[in-house]
Amino acid sequence: MLMFIFRRLIQTIPVVIGVTFVVFFIMQLVPGDPAVLLAGEGASKETIAGIREQLGLNRPLFVQYFDYLINIFQGDFGLSLKNSQPVLDEILVRLPITMELAFFSIIITIVLGMAAGIISAIKPYSLTDTSVMLVALFGISLPSFWFGLMLMYFFSVKLQILPVAGWDSILHVILPALTLGAGGAAIVARMTRSSMLEVIRQDYIRTARAKGLRERVIVYKHALRNALIPVITVVGLQFGALLGGTVLVESIFAINGLGRMIVDAIRMRDLPMVQGGVLFASMIFVIVNLFVDVFYRFFNKRIELN
């Protein structure tokens, strides 16, 4: 097991380098010259060239990239083009907020999704099942910005029981987390249901019935543990989608998290900021996937032998 974690860690190194590579070069392809933007409208060519010189933007791309890579490994993500503050400082302020949001969202995804999936699977093709799955279908189909706005309109504007936006108390977390977690919950619900139905058909469930166990014990003890194995992978993947979703949700609910920071930075052509933000988000995704893999393997020891 330790060996596996070690090997898996080593495997993440090329992934991380790959991410930096992609992040760096994609930003180069984005139209618009940061030097022009910084210099402001009507600046002279000399000023722009000066800024370019100062930022090292006139060097060959590969040199810039390796420079960038070395700096990253030293913890230097560069200075924001906007306010000349270190990118890392900004990220470290924003990151906890996004992590908090992501945490609550994934909890909603897991709890809501699995519960709905199990309820559906216990009585397949019943009215409950059909309604739950219909809701889940909506959950997958609805765009999150629309869903978020609807929630906001309903709970904050009409009922006035929850705050509209911002990030101060636990009450502020509810709506954004729900918006962000809903799509994942729907996917997890469908996955849990189909996985449960698959497991319920297995021979060992028949064995459990033949033992005289109650249906409740059969479902929660014998079926669920096996059914959740594939669901874990889906949850891991959902986390990636969720990180992407923070960009939108943070903008809607005016939360000063990493997602919103990236959006603002893109708008400002604040290259180092965007790079830093995206890189951090990717790193989180890589780490979460590592956890999922280890967790999956722990749950499903048979992989090791077969």
Partner: peptide, 22 residues
């Protein structure tokens, strides 16, 4: 349920799949 596994028991064909793997 009180009869199953208590007074009348059953063993199945496939020992590979008839036991809960986890």
């Amino acid at each position: 349920r009180k009869i199953r596994g208590n007074e009348i028991s059953m063993i199945f064909q496939e020992p590979m799949t008839s036991l809960n793997p986890v």
